[in-house]
Design a protein around this nucleic acid. Structure first.
Length: 222
DNA sequence: CACCAGGCAAGTA
DNA sequence: TACTTGCATGGT
């Protein structure tokens, strides 16, 4: 792990920012909406999540107190467009119970706690895994933690900066040791990775011609 | 038609 | 520890 290696991670950020511009994430009006969106978007396209969130807003239950009172079957019906709706209805309830019991539904009270404590608590909730926990920490609670997802592994393994099978924690450690631990940087970087993965570095159809990372990419510069 | 999308938990070896 | 499977809608 050299200085050159560190520079690779900074250079990718600069190139992505230059190509795509600031993303201004997370798309959501409140911290609570971010938390809900983080659960609903598990292995699901964001457009489908938007439909589900709109249903919740129209029914006036995008509110922790109200959502906790809705029956799971009714909640599942509302979030239907986001897929896995039965599982996700339960996951939302599990999260709401945690949010109520430990923090009285107060985001500000959560923000006062350390990343380590919050992360451990979030991972104890059934339905909250590493990515969802970190998304909540970074985008709802503004903690400096780097979010890893399928796009991150795809893009950086194609750049030969990690293996495709790298574990969540190993890749996260790499990012967090190679970059300054700053919330604003982690926020923008992950958002750029998602945008790039969706639109350019696709799973089956990489559009390498439009890719600002092409000069760094051994896959395409042969 | 097949494949993909901002994962996770539970089961198996 | 490291796979495998079920969960489910909607867009390309």
């Amino acid at each position: 792990m050299s200085v050159l290696y560190t520079m690779e991670f900074k250079r990718v950020f600069d190139l992505l920012l230059k190509q795509h511009g600031p993303q201004n994430w997370w798309p959501g009006e409140t911290s609570f909406e971010v938390m809900i969106g983080a659960i609903l978007t598990q292995n699901t396209s964001w457009t489908n999540v938007e439909k589900a969130i709109l249903n919740l807003k129209n029914k006036k239950i995008l509110d922790p107190h109200k959502m906790l009172r809705v029956h799971n079957t009714q909640l599942a019906k509302l979030i239907r467009p986001s897929g896995y709706f039965n599982q996700k209805a339960n996951k939302l309830k599990n999260y709401l119970n945690f949010f109520k019991n430990k923090y009285g539904f107060f985001v500000q009270k959560m923000k006062k706690e350390s990343v380590e404590k919050l992360r451990n608590e979030l991972l104890e909730v059934n339905g909250i895994g590493p990515e969802t926990a970190d998304s909540i920490l970074l985008y709802a609670l503004e903690k400096p933690i780097f979010v890893i997802d399928a796009y991150t592994k795809r893009i950086f393994s194609r750049l030969s900066l990690c293996r495709e099978s790298v574990s969540y924690y190993d890749l996260q450690s790499i990012f967090m040791t190679q970059l300054p631990q700053k919330t604003s940087l982690y926020n923008e970087y992950h958002a750029l990775i998602v945008h790039h993965g969706k639109n350019i570095c696709k799973k089956s159809k990489p559009r390498c011609g439009d890719c600002s990372l092409q000069s760094m990419c051994p896959q395409t510069s042969l």
